[in-house]
Amino acid sequence: MTIPTADDQPTESSGPLLEHLARLLRLRTENLLTPLGLRPRHFVTLTLLRDGGGTTQQALAARLAMDGTNVVGLLNELESAGLVARRRSPEDRRRHIVELTDTGHATLTQAECAVVAAEEEVLGFLSSEERHLLYALLRKATSETEVRCTEAVL
């Protein structure tokens, strides 16, 4: 068995670069979301709820790739802040439907402005076209991953 050397490694590994970029963006985003009482996971959850409309806690857990128990805790935080509301599903009384409140919509709008500012700081050296391409590629990669992960769970 031979031990791989630096010459054997791929020269274009995206993982470490994505991780580093995500860390920089996460740190800056956290600093800007904190005054709004939000953390990045709150922001992601609110965005998914806005974009997808009301959804069950179970479906939200799958989209967030989180354990259901952790999602309940996350939703408890958002609900106590008045950002989301849970109601019983009319089709299945055992399930809860989660929806953004008006306060949740307003807070999400403020948070989106904060995230734009964070992205400007971290990605400001990219041209508009490069940012659009980066977004499109990330969107494609994440949506394809979501589909494969969801299919694997079912």
Rank of each mutant, 00 (worst) to 15 (best):
A65W: 05
L38Q: 01
G104E: 04
G68W: 00
P16I: 07
R88M: 11
R87F: 10
D92V: 12
T109S: 12
T45I: 01
N70M: 11
A59L: 06
K140H: 14
E119I: 02
A65S: 06
L60S: 03
R41Q: 12
V115T: 03
A136N: 11
V115P: 03
L78M: 05
L133T: 09
A65L: 09
R88I: 10
C113M: 13
T2Y: 11
G73Y: 04
L17A: 14
L48K: 15
T142V: 15
L137Y: 07
R23G: 10
L18A: 14
E19I: 12
R94K: 08
I97Y: 00
D92N: 14
P35I: 02
E129H: 11
Q110E: 12
H42W: 00
S14N: 12
L100M: 12
E77C: 03
E146H: 11
N31P: 07
R28M: 11
G52K: 12
G53S: 08
R39S: 08
Q9H: 05
G68L: 03
D67V: 03
G73Q: 08
E130S: 14
R26I: 08
E112F: 02
L21M: 07
T150M: 05
L100E: 05
L49G: 01
L17E: 12
T103S: 10
T29P: 06
T55F: 00
A81I: 10
T145S: 09
D7I: 09
P4F: 01
T45Y: 02
T11H: 03
N31F: 09
S80L: 09
E119Y: 02
H96F: 06
S14L: 15
R139F: 09
L48E: 09
H42D: 06
A62H: 07
T47V: 03
